[in-house]
Nucleic acid binder design. Structure first.
Lengths: 155, 155
DNA sequence: GTTTCTGCAAATCATTTGCACCTGA
DNA sequence: TCAGGTGCAAATGATTTGCAGAAAC
């Protein structure tokens, strides 16, 4: 299993270009605009796998275009979240964290020592969900779950 | 099961007075001082069950003594955490959150709708720990686990 | 021509830090 | 005495907001 998110280098997602291409139309369907700034953020997101903080995204956008304004990025993230294109949760440090194109609901594992992060697989997640569902009828929102601990390598 | 923390009214913990009384000595053993400000925070903590944010504690201290200074509270919390008297994690909103006198390592459940919070029981926690341990050798730090979802009542 | 954005600057807000003065042991 | 603490004020740093002008459709 590969770590995801900031500790690991981002990988391109050319296989998802079709999905990203539809963003423009999805915006328009709702009477929203397809602006250069939004295009830029979507371009950055399309190169991103796993999860990133808002500040990360601001920085990556700024690498492409130094004139990027943070508030625009955050506002665009809000819009993209409404479209279901990103989703936000919280990292182990309590920092806001966005994850991209949630193919499936998943939580995150975060190693306290090396800082690497992994996605919790569907099976692992199912076990957690089932436990709390059975014990007290609690409906877990897996996409907000972040579990901290130490990974195999660091133990 | 009763909700814990801010959404529920705090209950006194007179049964733990002995444990709180030892704080003074525990500080002195390390060459640290027992000051009025620390006494005040410990008094507030002894009236607290479950988890609270740092800002909450500052406010509660200020109710007792309006001259309370936030930085002193935070610094004292750091010290108390080193003594193992409180422990900090993060709430579903990413806010710093302290929990008090962790009798046992436990995580938290947080209802997205009503905002109530519960402790994850030892058995439930064990199930989660075991799942991730078996699947990938990951050592979960239960005290940092906060799971968001919807409680039975809100579904 | 509207309605939605953007840029900018200023505001939040919990938490942290630097530093000179105070105080508990 | 003197290391450890406190008060105060200013710094942080991510995220948000108000608003006037700019751009998309």
């Amino acid at each position: 299993m590969q770590p995801v998110g900031s500790p690991a280098p981002s990988e391109s997602r050319s296989d998802d270009l079709a999905a990203w291409g539809s963003v423009r139309d999805r915006l328009r369907e709702r009477g929203l605009r397809w602006t250069p700034q939004r295009r830029a953020l979507v371009a950055v997101l399309s190169q991103t796998r796993g999860h990133v903080t808002g500040a990360d995204l601001v920085e990556r956008c700024r690498e492409q275009d130094p004139s990027t304004i943070p508030s625009t990025v955050y506002r665009t993230l809000d819009v993209l979240e409404e479209l279901g294109i990103v989703r936000h949760g919280h990292g182990p440090d309590g920092r806001e964290e966005y994850h991209v194109l949630p193919d499936a609901e998943h939580g995150h594992l975060h190693c306290r020592d090396c800082g690497a992060a992994w996605e919790i697989t569907a099976e692992e997640g199912a076990s957690i969900v089932a436990t709390l569902e059975a014990a007290r009828g609690f409906a877990v929102d897996l996409s907000h779950v972040t579990i901290v601990g130490r990974c195999r390598a660091c133990r």
